[in-house]
């Protein structure tokens, strides 16, 4: 793991690390990836024909409109404005 890879992963993960945190994280992630690398010794390929779908789609709920949660209750964990979620400006 190097700084370039960590930067890439931080972009994918939407995370920030300070310079000091980066050093520690690179060291720890290198050890973790070394452990994960042991899986490469296992000589087998994934056979997607062996995996039957675990979900029986016949059992899914019917797609029908039903009363759902109260909007106010759904927004109890944020500070909405006019029933809308407030976010920073997305386009300049």
């Amino acid at each position: 793991m190097d700084i370039k890879t960590l930067d890439h992963l931080c972009n994918l993960s939407k995370l920030n690390y300070s310079e000091e945190e980066q050093k520690k994280t690179i060291a720890q992630m290198s050890d973790i990836i070394e452990l994960m690398d042991t899986i490469k010794d296992f000589d087998i390929s994934y056979d997607d024909t062996k995996d039957k779908n675990e979900i029986a789609y016949d059992d899914l709920r019917k797609d029908e409109a039903k009363p759902s949660f109260d909007t106010e209750k759904l927004q109890q964990n944020t500070q909405p404005r006019d029933n809308c979620y407030v976010v920073p400006k997305m386009m300049e």
């Binding site: 890879t5 960590l6 890439h8 992963l9 931080c10 994918l12 993960s13 995370l15 994280t25 720890q28 992630m29 973790i32 990836i33 994960m36």
Partner: peptide, 12 residues
């Protein structure tokens, strides 16, 4: 955070 990084590493 480490697990998110590892997960995204494995999927990238």
């Amino acid at each position: 955070k480490r697990r998110i990084l590892l997960g995204n590493y494995a999927l990238s």
